[in-house]
């Protein structure tokens, strides 16, 4: 019997090689961690867990048809992280503004013109404003990634909620090597996860590809109440 929050390792390649005897009902295909036009993702987790790269990877495919925008509330965004994901420098617009009063107008305007928006949320933005922006994203068919500077998004806002649970790095030792590869364990929920909390492991080596870990995949945990 499964326990609440347990992780089950399964093989994504061949069903008969599943290492744990549970039906692979909750497999997440590597390409499935994506955001459709007009859909909203919410990220929560400490800086350092890899969520900037995860969030950018959700809107990077839209940079093929036009610029994408990053609303940088803290003024810390490093565009190199986006270039490494394959975004051309002239397809990335960075808006540096931490003003909570104009934040909603800026995001709404960006949604009407660019192909994808990653917006950090300053403290003090009201839930009603977030819901308005979700509606705007849907009407303009522009994917929107929201990341509160502190805390998490209110419930019912995001189509896909990703919460960073664990992070580990390969490549470094006691003074040797260099950072090579990060593995982030994310808990996914929302409509994207069909009402189920799923644990996804994402591997990132700084190249233009960010992968859901093959062979390991995914775990079914609990149904939402």
């Amino acid at each position: 019997m499964r326990t609440k929050g347990s992780t089950v390792v399964v093989n994504l390649q061949r069903e008969d090689e599943v290492t744990v005897g549970l039906p692979p009902r909750f497999l997440v295909e590597p390409e499935a961690l994506s955001l459709g036009p007009g859909q909203v993702a919410g990220l929560s987790g400490l800086p350092g867990t890899g969520l900037t790269r995860v969030g950018l990877s959700l809107i990077v495919p839209y940079a093929v048809s036009g610029p994408i925008a990053y609303l940088d509330v803290r003024g810390w965004m490093n565009p190199t992280a986006a270039w490494e994901l394959g975004v051309e420098a002239d397809r990335l617009v960075v808006v540096r503004s931490g003003d909570v009063v104009t934040w909603g107008r800026v995001v709404a305007t960006l949604l009407s013109g660019v192909r994808g928006v990653y917006a950090e949320i300053p403290n003090g933005v009201r839930e009603a404003m977030l819901r308005t922006l979700v509606a705007k994203a849907r009407s303009h068919r522009t994917p929107l990634v929201l990341r509160p500077v502190t805390g998490a998004l209110p419930a019912g806002i995001a189509h896909l909620r990703l919460e960073a649970k664990e992070v580990s790095w390969e490549g470094t030792d006691a003074g040797h090597g260099q950072l090579l590869r990060r593995r982030t364990v994310l808990e996914a929920s929302g409509k994207w996860a069909k009402g189920i909390h799923r644990t996804i492991e994402v591997e990132d080596d700084g190249t233009n590809d960010l992968r859901v870990v093959p062979h390991l995949g995914i775990a079914a945990t609990r149904r939402l109440a």
């Binding site: 800086p47 890899g50 900037t52 790269r53 950018l56 803290r74 003024g75 810390w76 965004m77 490093n78 190199t80 992280a81 490494e84 260099q178 950072l179 990132d204 080596d205 700084g206 190249t207």
Partner: peptide
Amino acid sequence: IPGPAPALVPP
């Protein structure tokens, strides 16, 4: 510093 690049860099 060798890559990957840090995604957040304080000004």
